[in-house]
């Protein structure tokens, strides 16, 4: 396979901050790479270097076969970029934005107009077509932003946290649009701090932390590195977690997590054993822990991140143990500033 994006030992420093500290990555043509990391990991800086906005201090990178420092014009002709903020003209309508970007991509007046109409249709933006972009909802603007980055079909598309701050429905719609773009043969590099998003969309995942790669592989491979399935007992109260871990100590090595207790599982029989053990403790008249949920689960990328970096991927998981149990939908928009400028 050929690499559509290849970065080799990129370094970029801002003052004392090493935003990129020898970052290397590779995106095979026609695939989606998820670049995963917490705020400040260097995701946006990596995108800015690969899209020719920033020159690296050291290292080199090629995009669509062109060197980002030596041949920026060729790189720009081959890429599409959707940043963290929908970078559209809020005074123009959706259609006018698309026509403008089409013309700047040298489509010619008539072709730019035809392409705009086609993209509005394809991204289900026809209702918003003649409204000013500033009045559109966040999700609609992001979809329009995505459409604007492919006015001239790019070889490589960069999506910098495409769903940060979106509601669940808009997020699903954007995911669908990204999958369609991949199906049409576009190589995609997407950054995200949502583990679920990388798991959902990416063929391969590169996990970065503090400007360097900490792990690389398919989501499955990464999960396997952390180990097999676990039986997870969700327990809200810390004292109860201790109680449960003592009760289950006979079944294997128990880990106490911020949101519960888990132990390695060989299969459904582990689940049966856990339930039996807890039930026997109850019959024996031992103190009863309040348990919210028991289930078998494959390790998530959250587990992977914790295992690889020693700290959780999501700031709120660090601050508040309950977060890991809460659903993605309720997650609030986070500040998206990557590196202080």
């Amino acid at each position: 396979m050929t690499a559509a994006v290849e970065a080799d030992a990129l370094v970029k420093t801002f003052g004392d901050i090493r935003a990129l500290d020898g970052l290397s990555l590779r995106v095979e043509a026609g695939t989606i790479l998820g670049l995963l990391g917490p705020n400040g990991a260097g995701k946006t800086t990596a995108i800015n270097v690969l899209t020719t906005l920033l020159s690296p201090d050291a290292g080199r990178a090629t995009v669509a076969g062109h060197d980002v420092v030596e041949q920026p014009a060729l790189v720009r002709a081959a890429i599409g970029v959707t940043g963290q903020f929908a970078a559209l003209d809020s005074g123009l309508t959706a259609r006018e934005n698309l026509v403008l970007f089409g013309r700047l991509m040298k489509l010619g007046r008539a072709e730019a107009r035809r392409r705009a109409a086609e993209l509005l249709e394809r991204f289900t933006l026809t209702e918003a077509a003649d409204q000013r972009t500033g009045t559109l909802s966040g999700g609609t603007r992001r979809r329009l932003d995505l459409a604007a980055s492919i006015t001239r079909e790019p070889a490589v598309l960069f999506l910098d946290e495409p769903t940060t701050g979106l509601d669940p429905r808009s997020r699903l719609a954007l995911w669908e649009a990204v999958r369609e773009l991949r199906a049409s043969g576009i190589t995609i590099l997407l950054t995200t701090q949502y583990l679920e998003e990388a798991d959902e969309l990416a063929d391969r995942v590169t996990i970065i932390d503090r400007g360097r790669v900490v792990a690389e592989g398919t989501a499955e491979e990464l999960k396997r590195r952390v180990g097999g399935a676990v039986c997870h007992i969700a327990v809200a109260d810390a004292a109860d977690r201790q109680l449960v871990s003592e009760t289950l100590g006979t079944l294997g090595p128990v880990s106490v997590l911020p949101d519960g207790v888990s132990l390695p599982a060989t299969g459904p029989e582990t689940l049966v054993a856990v339930v039996r053990e807890l039930d026997e403790a109850r019959h024996a008249g031992l103190p009863i822990a309040r348990i919210d949920d028991i289930g078998l689960r494959r390790p998530t990328l959250d587990d992977v991140f914790l295992a690889l970096t020693g700290h959780p991927a999501t700031p709120d998981a660090q601050a508040d143990g309950e977060a890991a149990a809460s659903d993605e939908a309720g997650r609030p928009a986070r500040p998206t500033a990557e590196v202080a400028s």
């Binding site: 020719t52 014009a73 890429i79 970029v81 940043g83 903020f85 970078a87 809020s90 700047l104 991509m105």
Partner: peptide
């Protein structure tokens, strides 16, 4: 400030 220029700079403009 709102990123519009940055986007233009990633295009062959």
């Amino acid at each position: 400030r709102d990123g519009f220029d940055a986007r233009i700079r990633t295009m062959p403009v």
